[in-house]
Design a protein around this nucleic acid. Structure first.
Lengths: 210, 210
DNA sequence: CCTTAAATTGAACAGTGCTCAAAATACTTA
DNA sequence: TAAGTATTTTGAGCACTGTTCAATTTAAGG
């Protein structure tokens, strides 16, 4: 059927994503170039567009790979933590991965445009996988909490950690003094979990959803 | 001296920034075009580059204007709050402004690149102004806290609210259920302030900086 | 009016994402 | 093996981008 003998379609995808992520890590999302990726892989731009449809398509595939690596990192940190403070391990894993792959990490979020439609289902699967890791640990810490409450709290905890993480990476508001952001984020998480624990055992004074 | 009689340099800056922000609000940061701005204002690209030096220069000027409007919005909300819950007013103001000017708001943060140097001082002034608003209110709620503790807590509170705000705007993790993000963010802020209040009155059990 | 200095211009350059007729390749059938 | 068919692969071409800078236009001074 005319495919070049040396690579199947699936191998091609991997090639483009791998080399694309290498370039992304070098130059960042703004100076990223599909042409450059194609050149490094040794195929033409046309082939890249046949495989991914658009730059956004390639970006999505690369971000999915990043999400997979991120999930692996989190699971590894959890394994290390064992029966210790597993939530702290997750927070540390969040920060560590962002610090180790800053350009790839911000690409995940910067690509999410404000008015872009929802991501395709296969991509949302990757997101759900990572969130599932956190949900599981939050549920473990709050065994008496209802599943919706666990989901809501998880979302809030991730948002909290994300805010601290992104401010650290962007060096925003450094004028407010050099604090240990991981430690501070963990404090916020502990407080939120403690508050949720109280409202679970004595009935919610203030409901989590308004 | 050869300036076109109808506009001084300062007026030109305002013209470009105003029209630029209009375009930004329409098309967002990714499809923004300096040429388009110049065309709408009625000057050539060359003039735009004489005034701002680069696209980043124009972007910075536009973001500075956004920060000013944001600060005005926050102060207005504070005035409304009077002696009520002023921190809640700030959280509401944070979310409201982001929701009302989504494209301009994300531009403030997306433009902050990972490896870009620090912003020029005149720009940092605008950032410091907004942070000053929050610092003042945090200090008001925790009169016994030391200034460094107030700064550190402020940074953490803003990061927390920012995380919830950006997740809402990006519709990230919507699969975890539809919660009221403003309310949840306010819960996190209340918990953090309460915890800080406790550690102030009975001496910090765990120091804020590690 | 002529000189001088500043402001304004826009063609030109190197790059981008993206398309799609044509070429190259492989598989199938005779 | 040769011809025919189906599928990849290609890359010039299009419309755009940010950026530069010699040339032009404009205004002020003498």
């Amino acid at each position: 059927m005319g495919r070049r003998s040396d690579h199947t379609r699936g191998e091609l995808e991997v090639l483009f994503v791998t080399e694309g992520r290498r370039l992304l890590a070098e130059v960042g999302v703004t100076r990223f170039s599909a042409r450059e990726v194609a050149k490094k892989v040794g195929y033409s731009i046309g082939t890249l567009y046949n495989v991914f449809g658009s730059l956004d398509g390639l970006m999505l595939a690369m971000n999915a790979r990043t999400l997979t690596l991120w999930a692996e990192h989190l699971r590894a940190r959890l394994e290390e933590a064992g029966k210790g403070d597993r939530l702290a391990a997750l927070v540390r894993g969040y920060f560590e991965f962002a610090a180790d792959h800053p350009k790839a990490w911000v690409a995940i979020f910067e690509n999410q445009m404000v008015d872009a439609g929802p991501a395709p289902e296969w991509y949302q699967t990757h997101v759900a996988d990572i969130m599932g890791i956190v949900v599981e640990e939050v549920a473990r810490v709050l065994p008496a909490a209802s599943p919706p409450a666990v989901l809501s709290l998880t979302r809030s905890l991730v948002a909290t950690v994300h805010g601290h993480c992104i401010f650290t990476l962007y060096r925003a508001f450094d004028m407010l003094g050099e604090t240990a952001p991981i430690y501070v984020a963990m404090e916020r998480v502990r407080e939120a979990v403690a508050a949720a624990g109280r409202s679970v055992q004595q009935g919610p004074l203030t409901p989590l959803t308004k």
